[in-house]
């Protein structure tokens, strides 16, 4: 699943296709006229709004039980019904937005901050450092991602924080591979060779020439990774390895609602739809970002 992220951008083509600065404004124009990007941004804004103001949007509490009001069918008071402890399903869904978005962003940013420097170091320094890093990457790549993530969570114990840690530990390799390949191909390009010949410092080469090329690609990668992380976090929570009760997390809610699937199918359907809408919105934005940064794919 996380592999999507890396594969969406064919590595070898990246360096050729991205010319810094020249099209920053073009990219922005492309984004602001992209219907999908606009739709995705609107939906995402609504979700962020719901996440921040969850407490104001509903009269109920996500964790307070009400045993005289359990398993209520959907109604005006309870849009998707109440669960087996009498908690309002819609309220928990709103609070779940908070958790899912936080996890997605947290995992992507933490992973990026480990994966990108490692990839840059491997690509720029080469030699033994590169070899060691890439051997580790190869080993991790040979595992099915989820198996490794599950084993990691089993080591550190199931909880939200630990799940984030485990996901970061197993997905940094995608950034590393991506950034390394960009840096590798850039290192040989004429303008960097020329800059080196002119006596530019290492720092100046990294910050003035390499970084501007890496950033747009990483931005696209992060946007897809946020979507990806939300999906995987839901799957792990569904297996009982992520969010712990009573946390209102969508995956955990799904696993809980499975027992009530026949009498209250909405409790199973709604969190799944919520995940889908969130991930779809982010993917819309990611797609548009990629189109904006990769002119060859644009119509």
């Amino acid at each position: 699943m996380a592999e999507h992220v890396a594969e969406l951008i064919p590595e070898a083509e990246i360096a050729e296709k991205i010319k810094p600065k020249s099209f920053t404004s073009m990219a922005w124009r492309s984004l602001s006229t992209n219907k999908q990007a606009i739709l995705g941004s609107i939906v995402l804004s609504i979700l962020v709004f719901a996440a921040i103001f969850a407490g104001q949007l509903t009269p109920y509490e996500p964790y307070t039980t009400n045993y005289s009001n359990v398993k209520q069918l959907p109604s005006a008071q309870h849009l998707i019904g109440t669960d087996e402890l009498g908690r309002d399903g819609f309220t928990r869904l709103l609070y779940g937005t908070r958790i899912s978005l936080t996890i997605g962003v947290l995992v992507a940013l933490c992973t990026m901050s480990i994966g990108v420097p490692l990839g840059a170091i491997a690509g720029y320094l080469g030699g033994v450092v590169d070899m060691v890093i890439m051997r580790v990457v190869d080993v991790l790549m040979a595992f099915p991602f989820l198996v490794l993530a599950i084993a990691m969570v089993a080591v550190v114990g199931p909880s939200l924080v630990n799940m984030v840690f485990a996901l970061v530990m197993v997905s940094w390799i995608w950034y590393t591979r991506l950034v390394r390949s960009i840096v590798l191909s850039l290192r040989e390009t004429e303008y960097i060779v020329a800059a080196q010949a002119l006596g530019a410092s290492q720092a100046s080469i990294i910050f003035r020439h390499i970084l501007p090329n890496v950033i747009p690609v990483v931005v696209v990668q992060v946007s897809f990774h946020v979507a990806e992380a939300i999906l995987i976090a839901a799957a792990l929570s569904y297996l009982g390895l992520g969010a712990q009760p009573p946390t209102a997390e969508w995956g955990a809610m799904l696993s809980n609602a499975k027992e009530l699937m026949r009498i209250l199918p909405m409790l199973s359907i709604a969190p799944g739809v919520a995940i889908m809408i969130t991930v779809l919105a982010i993917n819309f934005i990611g797609d548009a970002l990629r189109d904006a940064l990769d002119p060859t794919l644009r119509n």
Partner: peptide, 21 residues
Amino acid sequence: LIGISMPAFWFGIMLMLVFGL
């Protein structure tokens, strides 16, 4: 894109509900 954005295990549960039950 919807396919990519859907949690597969949830899709499985929905299929189970519709075609199995």
